[in-house]
Design a protein around this nucleic acid. Structure first.
Lengths: 187, 187
DNA sequence: ATCAATATCCCTATTTATGGGGATATCAAA
DNA sequence: TTTGATATCCCCATAAATAGGGATATTGAT
């Protein structure tokens, strides 16, 4: 259960309205933001305000936090509510509860602090390169079962399920950066 | 069938040796490069030398070219040969032929010049965000069959099969860039 | 010496994705 | 007006990934 709820909207009316609607919503810290930049600053992520990048960064750097972004048109992440401006307090709180029920709970979060092992990093890099589990198994000279095991652990540790999310994570962590490629290893 | 073969290696001995080994390999232009930078320059891609990024850029900007990168350790792309330094000319040419047999032929390349339609762009963006075909169908209010159709066309047009490759393509083309997000659309 | 972490491997079942066919309706350009 | 591009929908079959459950061996730290 997240302890912080961010409200991101340019309109002050909307921000204050939603803050009021959520005031009675259990005990959370409600944080209104006028822009994506302000939201990103609060997370101390300065490089980009792109939601999927923010998500990858949060998984990477601020592992003990979960976040919810409220959105009507642009998709942001799996953890996103689609609401209209006519939403009632009851509907809003009820949907938030349903969304949160799908999030990993506090107990799981402790495990999120783990960083990836060497082998998991190997697998993640190859996933980001676009290889299938079978391909990865062949490249690392291990069975496909082992690859699947590593991928389960990666998904659990990072809380990133999609291949595209893992790809962004890999890019952000220089797993597939040119600086890491030793040209002398070619051929 | 690609008309250009790039040989990328820091060692001049290796470059010249491979060039000689491929001299008798049908009628191709053999282009030795001493570094990834040189390789990237030849493709007129200046932003990054990361192979997967180069691949995405090639698919984007230089659609009429196919390329082969020879590599022993670091994975580069699906179109990559894994060879040891002890490879014979016969083995090299035979493996190259097998690899090329899997590449789309000249006839297909004409269609690669097409750019994505608006709807295909919509779908690609959501793929890059990590959504499943089912999720995308729900978000765009179309059937999953339509989503699959669009994805087939995207894959064919871009010659990018993997989700991670599509994600990189989307990032490079600002499909999921923060600049494109209208904050007023939030909520 | 025991314990935790890592890395390896296996199983079953289900869900998604891919590949290769199709079909229809709309609309704009030749 | 016919043709091509776009967007929509459907089918079947296979490949791949995911979700849940296991097991074993090694190694390094307590």
């Amino acid at each position: 259960m997240p302890n912080r709820i961010f409200i991101i909207h340019r309109s002050e009316v909307i921000r204050k309205g939603l803050t009021a609607m959520l005031a009675s919503f259990e005990k959370r810290e409600i944080i209104p933001c006028a822009s994506m930049d302000e939201f990103a600053d609060t997370y101390e992520t300065s490089v980009s305000t792109e939601p999927i990048l923010v998500e990858a960064k949060v998984a990477n750097r601020i592992k003990h936090l979960r976040f919810i972004v409220i959105d009507a048109i642009n998709p942001v992440s799996k953890n996103t509510l689609q609401l209209s401006i006519h939403t009632s307090t009851a509907e809003l709180q009820e949907k938030l509860k349903r969304l949160e029920a799908e999030l990993p709970d506090e107990a799981d979060k402790q495990e999120d602090f783990n960083t990836l092992t060497d082998r998991e990093t190997d697998v993640l890099r190859l996933v980001a390169y676009g290889y299938s589990n079978k391909d990865i198994a062949d490249k690392l000279f291990i069975s496909i079962h082992t690859v699947i095991s590593h991928r389960k652990n990666i998904t659990e540790k990072l809380s990133i399920k999609s291949i595209s999310g893992l790809t962004v994570y890999a890019i952000l962590n220089n797993l597939i950066d040119s600086d890491n490629i030793d040209i002398s290893e070619l051929i």
